[in-house]
Design a protein around this nucleic acid. Structure first.
Lengths: 293, 293
DNA sequence: AATTACGATTTCATATTTGGAATTTAATGT
DNA sequence: ACATTAAATTCCAAATATGAAATCGTAATT
């Protein structure tokens, strides 16, 4: 029914069945029949047609005026949805926390950009949570699950946190041998976490430690810098400090204890995504993290 | 394609294939297949469905949001056009010239109203031409063809005009025996016609007579009144004065000469009508005039 | 006046879609 | 854990729709 009306609109716009048929890649025979069927179902003729002339009846005119805009909009949304679903080029805006983006994920961004050169990636790094709708972002990376029910989310990976400090600091202040021994130390942490759910990797023992944090920041890389400068003991994602540990610049403190897991999520507004590019990035990050965590 | 989307929208709105199928009078089997076909052609699943639950996928959500309004509008226009095409009840506004409407056409109106009691007829009588679009009229009656190309028109009938006066006037001022003899008389006419294209019914001879009109009005029935009061000789539609002639109140002057024909048209805006009621009235008047002229 | 050209339509064999019945599925209640 | 049940799906014969080619119809050309 409505499909036939769409055909009719095209017939009018191309002034003839043959032209419309060609443009739409539909055989002319089908055109005739569909138009006939439409006219039958409407109970009126829409167009006076003969070999060499094409004239709308008053009814045809009225139907054209009534439907033309709607059909155009219909085709517009169709194209737009189609592009969102399949197009792997064009703009893609993503919000992400600064810390992991320039640390753990930095090589991922490079690789993604190289893999999909037609996608114009805009990475908006920020430590405070930006409104997705307001910033018109397609995707956002967030640490920890989101409460906002207007957002879909997918778990991308889990960052393990560990306690680290410089050997210099530890030599100076003494290396703690138990959780209680942390009390006397200068602790550095992110604002987000006020209780450290520590887990003993060997025994599986859990412990809720309420740290008296001496220095706070919402920026992971700043905390890393502070730790490297020997300011104190920092709770940081393993991914962030792995290289520092390997180079000997930092040293794990209480190595049998891990800090609380920090889950990384991709989130996006409900009623959107579908966006092939965002879906692609989301899965790309997911795959990347499975390989590199 | 778009028909399947319409089905999908209904499926969402009824939260299930079965409910939508019932409401639309379509077998459930068809529903499933159409939805499957749509999902195949879009390349993504739209709804997670099992016996007892119905959940939209993110893609389904997005498609629903994108199309729901359009589909609603589509169905609205469909209903509206359908009503215009077939509904024989509701309001019908028509513009008409005062003169013939209360004269020649008066019995027609009565008969139409009786024949179609469900049509709420609004007759807007006026001697000056009203804008159809502005007054939201469905149909207008006009004397003489219209130049306005934004209007469709259909010829309804032809009014013949004749010269008449009271016997009293003619006795008093003398009965003219030739066209030239009209010169000395008090002529009454409508504003519209400044040249009288007179035709001799017997010889077929034509004559362009430029009358020196003594009294003008745009209202035919007023002119008739004046003629009946013995003011002078009036050029009036035969239909208007027929009864007066038969009753002897008026008498034809130069009975072998007829005045210019005045064609009656129904006009309506292009891109409309379709309106079954207006079409009906138009044809009703046409039939009436064929019988009564 | 006959021919041409072009677009709409019809023909006919093939392919797809339809509707009702039977079947499967998975969340409910016992 | 098992039966129940409402909904979705699949099966199959009948109805419809489809595409390529032939035909038809009418303006424009010769």
């Amino acid at each position: 029914m409505y499909d036939d009306i769409v055909l009719f609109i095209h017939i009018v716009q191309h002034r003839g069945l043959a032209a419309a048929a060609q443009q739409l890649g539909i055989p002319a025979a089908t055109m005739t029949r569909k138009l006939q069927k439409l006219e039958r179902s409407l109970g009126c003729q829409l167009v006076h047609r003969s070999a060499r002339q094409f004239v709308l009846t008053p009814e045809g005119e009225a139907h054209y005026l009534a439907y033309a805009n709607l059909v155009e909009q219909l085709e517009l949304t169709q194209r737009s949805l189609r592009a969102d679903m399949h197009e792997m080029s064009g703009k893609l805006k993503v919000l992400a926390p600064t810390g992991i983006s320039i640390g753990l994920l930095q090589p991922m961004w490079s690789r993604f950009i190289k893999t999909y050169p037609d996608i114009q990636l805009e990475i908006s790094l920020n430590n405070v949570i930006e409104d997705m709708a307001l910033s018109k972002a397609d995707l956002a990376l967030r640490v920890g699950p989101q409460q906002n029910s207007a957002l879909y989310q997918k778990h991308l990976g889990t960052l393990q946190t560990v306690l680290v400090a410089t050997s210099g600091y530890l030599k100076n202040k003494g290396e703690p041998e138990s959780l209680d021994a942390l009390k006397g130390h200068h602790l550095i942490a992110t604002k987000a976490v006020s209780i450290w759910n520590l887990v003993n990797s060997k025994t599986g023992q859990q412990y809720e430690y309420r740290p008296r944090v001496s220095t706070l920041s919402n920026d992971v890389s700043l905390i890393t810098q502070l730790a490297c400068d020997g300011i104190g003991i920092a709770l940081l994602p393993m991914s962030e400090v792995k290289s520092h540990i390997e180079s000997g610049q930092l040293k794990r403190v209480l190595p049998e204890w891990r800090g609380p897991d920090r889950d990384l999520f991709a989130v996006w507004p409900t009623g959107r995504l579908l966006n092939a590019k965002a879906r692609c990035l989301r899965d790309f990050i997911h795959d990347y993290l499975r390989e590199h965590l």
